[in-house]
């Protein structure tokens, strides 16, 4: 609970963060940077959970615990994604998004 700050502002912040992540996902040319954008997205959700929990439903800790799991999952996901990206790099020596377009139509 942050004095003077309403839940609307919190949600606005997290939404902006979420859509910045989305924007990043759309525009980044490098797979690793795309993955970074995903981190923003996940963090937006985590922030949501925590702050909604504390603002609106403080008697239970569901949101708070949820966010712990989000972080854990984000870590696992990132690790795997990086492994996959590196695997790609070993084959084509590139991690550019534009080099992952041989399958289409």
């Amino acid at each position: 609970m942050i004095a003077g700050i309403s839940i609307y502002e919190i949600l606005t912040l997290s939404s902006i963060l979420f859509f910045i992540g989305i924007y990043g996902f759309f525009t980044r040319d490098n797979l690793i940077t795309v993955l970074m954008a995903v981190e923003l997205i996940l963090n937006a959700s985590a922030v949501n959970f925590v702050l909604i929990n504390t603002y609106l439903y403080p008697d239970l800790l569901q949101g708070a615990v949820f966010s712990i799991f989000i972080i854990a999952l984000a870590a696992a996901e990132t690790a795997l994604a990086i492994a996959i990206i590196i695997n790609l790099y070993r084959i084509i020596y590139s991690v550019e998004v534009k080099d992952t377009e041989i399958m289409k139509y």
């Binding site: 979420f18 992540g21 989305i22 996902f25 797979l31 795309v34 993955l35 995903v38 997205i41 996940l42 959700s45 996901e77 795997l80 994604a81 996959i84 990206i85 695997n87 790609l88 084959i91 084509i92 992952t100 041989i102 399958m103």
Partner: peptide
Amino acid sequence: ISAEGAVKYILSSALASG
């Protein structure tokens, strides 16, 4: 193509689960 598919899969699904 496997590598490429995997990249697409993991990133897309990360977005989706996000």
